[in-house]
Structures are given as structure tokens and as C-alpha cells.
Amino acid sequence: MDLALLRTFVTVHRAGSFTRAAALLGLSQPAVTSQIRTLERQLGRPLFLRQARGVTPTTIGDELAHKAAPHLDALVEITESGLDDESSLRTLHLAGPPEFTAERALPALTEPAGDHGQGFALRASFGTAEETLEGLSAGHHDLAISTARPRGALLTATALCDEEHVLVAAPHWAEEIGSVKLNRENAHVLDRVPVVEVHESLPLVSRYWASVFDSRPTASGTVIVPDLRAVLACAAAGAGLAVLPRYLCAAALKRHDVVALHEPAVPPLRTYFLVTRTGTLAMPHIARAHEWLLRAAADWC
């Protein structure tokens, strides 16, 4: 079987679209379509179901991708690194949310280097869970940190750590609310406080309200900024309340720049996953980074 056909097939499977796969491969869409049809004729089975937007793999398509993808990735690794492993430094491409990657992952991957180097060059990019997993599937990244567990067999996820979420605001907002102990019945007292969030949909605040108060927030976002570090800065400046990971706001809480408005018995948690393409942990530089992150995460929880 022609390996070029398998490479095209795996790229389509990961991209979910002939058009996106063509762009990744540097081919025309008709060429990609022709190669997939050729492979389907050779196998005597359909590999994809064509839809209005993109394609969905058949059961046979999923099985073939699961078997072929790790081997194709290994072949690409060999051709990119060359026969002499010592002749060049491998590059690890890491993707994840900006705050967690900057505050947690990157220090964990650079600290072990010491005087002898870490054994790989490092390139990091930031994005949403959807963006990072899509980029990982398409081969743009080697390792991804995501708050969403991926589906399917082409990506393998390992739970990395849980982060605790804290409802915080500047001290003067706590004084305005008073000493009332917040619960489901009186959570409405927070309606008078502006909200600082990362998105108009208020993902962190909504998750906190649903988990702790069994309700939905009624306020809209007053300040929307797509970085939790900026959210913390705005909250400390008095812009309003925010829901933040405890690791990110622990120092600000200690300095009393912000205060916790509520300390529930069971705080909301969010899980981070360390994700690779299935089979790529056989590559030493990816396996090393994976191990370092898991080891560091033991101290994060």
C-alpha cells in the first residue's frame, strides 16, 4: 500500500475536512479527494462519510487511523531528525492555555535543564482547548495541555492535575457585601458587584454559580479580557468579582490585594489533561517532557 495515501488519509482523519487536510499537506483539494477514493477502492470499504461541513470517519476509517497513525508519526520523526540522533536538537512543540502554560508548564520544562540542557528545544503556543487539540491532531504540536478530554483513539489523554477555583474581589467589595455567609438563598447579594471574565459567556463564573449556588449568574461581564492574569489585575484594581484558579491568585490573597468572597466546603475544580497523539510517547523528547510535567504536577494539586 502506498504510504502517501496513508499519510493523506491520516491527515484528513485528524483535520476532519478535505479542505483543511489539503492545506496541511500542500495539495489541492481534488488531489486529496482522489487519493482518498483510491485508498477506499483498494480497501473495498468507505473510510469517510461526506457531510455538509467536513467528513466523519466510518468505523473502518477509525480503526485504520488508530493502527496507522502512530507508525506514520514515527516515520516522520525519523525523516525529520535524521539518522544521527546526536546531530541535531529535537524541538518540542507545546500548546496550552496561556496562564497555566506560562505559570506551571514552562517552568517545569525549563527548570530540569540545569547545566546539561533539557535535551530538546522548546516552542510554546497558546490557545483554547479546542484550538490546542485541533492543532495537536493536525500535527502542529507534540504535546497539549487541555481542560477538555479528547475523544477518539488518535489522541491519548492523561489527567495532569486539578485546579481549585476561588471567588475573589478587591477588599472594598467584600466590605460592601458585608459579613453575610453566602449560600444558595442569598447569592443574589452578589448581583450588585460587576464581573470580570475571560469571555462574554462568563465560563468560570457560570461554572462556579452552578456548582456552588445551583443557579446562574444574572450579571453580565463588565470587563472582558482573555487572560486570567489580566482578570486578576482588574479584580485587584477594584473592577469587580472574578473566579480564578487558586494557584494564580494565592499570592494576591496573601497580600490582601483580593479577598475570597466565599469559601465553600467543596470548591469547584477543573481538571487539566496532558494530551499526545497516540504512539508518540515512543519519541524520547516527548516522553521526557511528558514525564517532567507529570512529576511536577504532583506538587501542584
Rank of each mutant, 00 (worst) to 15 (best):
A138E: 14
G178A: 12
H140S: 09
D162R: 15
A144W: 01
L133R: 07
V189R: 05
H165A: 13
S125K: 03
I177M: 14
G178R: 04
L160A: 08
V193A: 05
G127T: 03
G152C: 09
T132A: 15
E131C: 00
A129W: 04
L155W: 10
A157V: 05
L143W: 04
T158Q: 15
S125D: 11
L122C: 01
A144F: 01
I177C: 12
G135D: 12
R151D: 13
E175M: 08
L190M: 08
L143G: 05
F126I: 01
V193C: 10
G135C: 06
H140I: 02
F126Q: 06
D142M: 03
H188T: 10
N183K: 01
A169C: 11
L133V: 01
A169H: 09
N186Q: 03
G127P: 06
F120P: 02
H172S: 12
R123N: 06
V189Y: 02
R184C: 11
E130K: 10
V189M: 04
G152R: 02
T132S: 13
S146I: 06
E134Q: 13
L155Y: 10
N183G: 14
R149F: 05
A138D: 06
V166A: 14
D162M: 05
P171L: 08
G178H: 10
I145G: 08
A153E: 12
L133F: 09
T156I: 00
A159P: 15
R151Y: 04
T132D: 05
A129T: 03
S146R: 08
V189A: 05
R149W: 04
A153M: 06
